[in-house]
Simulated assay, not measured.
Amino acid sequence: MKTAPPYGITQRFRVAVDGIDLGGWKSCKGMNVSFKHKFHYEGGIYDGPAAVLPEHLEYQAITLERAMSATESPKVQKWLKDVSQLWMEDPTGGTYLGTTATITLLDATCTETVAVWGLRNVFPAKWSGPSLDAMGSASVALESLELVHQGFL
């Protein structure tokens, strides 16, 4: 019988970027794609468009969120630091052309993979750390990571 991994049921999404395991996350929002299209009308056809023409696919940015941890949060910071250094070396972005990432959904016991999405040309868009309050806020210190990408289909 398999035993549950240490990240538990609250972190059912595992994320890896270019093989770097960024750990478990409690939520993954924005996993969607819109199929953009254009209606084509012709004279003499009055009950609707003559054709629906495909234009492009549009992927929303993905936002990951979790409680900060001493073992997994530094991995994200290191990846962001490495990316920012590449961007500073070449401000045109030529050095950092995006990367690949995988988001793995685990079952309720966190022992079996339910689904895996492979993202292409991934860029970090935003990282947010916790709001800190020394006057007694009992909230959990959360971090979020927003990734933009060119698709998972």
Rank of each mutant, 00 (worst) to 15 (best):
K2E: 12
K2V: 13
K2N: 09
T3N: 08
A4S: 13
P5Y: 11
P6R: 09
Y7R: 15
G8Y: 03
T10C: 02
F13G: 05
V15A: 00
V17H: 02
G19C: 09
G19W: 12
D21K: 03
D21Q: 02
L22D: 00
L22G: 03
G24Q: 02
G24F: 00
G24N: 03
K29P: 02
G30F: 01
M31Q: 08
V33G: 00
S34M: 04
H37C: 09
H37D: 05
H37T: 15
F39Y: 06
H40F: 04
Y41C: 00
G44V: 07
Y46F: 07
G48F: 00
G48I: 00
P49D: 10
A50G: 05
A50Q: 11
V52Y: 06
P54A: 06
H56W: 07
L57M: 09
E58P: 02
E58G: 04
Y59N: 00
Q60W: 01
A61S: 13
I62F: 02
T63W: 08
T63A: 11
L64V: 10
R66C: 00
A67P: 03
A67S: 10
M68H: 07
M68G: 08
S69W: 12
A70W: 07
T71R: 07
S73F: 03
P74F: 13
P74L: 13
V76I: 15
Q77L: 13
D82H: 04
D82Y: 05
V83H: 07
S84M: 07
L86S: 15
L86E: 12
L86M: 14
L86H: 10
W87I: 14
M88F: 10
M88G: 12
D90Y: 05
T92M: 11
G93L: 14
G94D: 11
G98Q: 06
G98P: 06
T102V: 15
I103E: 13
L105V: 06
L106G: 10
A108S: 14
C110F: 00
C110L: 01
T111A: 06
E112Q: 15
T113C: 07
W117F: 13
W117G: 11
L119I: 00
R120I: 01
N121L: 12
V122L: 02
V122H: 07
F123P: 02
F123I: 02
F123H: 10
K126F: 01
G129K: 08
G129F: 09
G129A: 06
S131T: 14
L132H: 08
D133F: 15
D133K: 14
D133V: 12
D133N: 15
A134Q: 08
M135R: 05
G136T: 07
G136V: 12
S137T: 14
E143I: 07
E143M: 12
S144D: 13
S144I: 11
L145Q: 11
L145R: 14
E146R: 07
E146H: 02
H149I: 10
H149T: 04
H149E: 10
Q150E: 12
G151E: 03
F152W: 15
L153C: 06
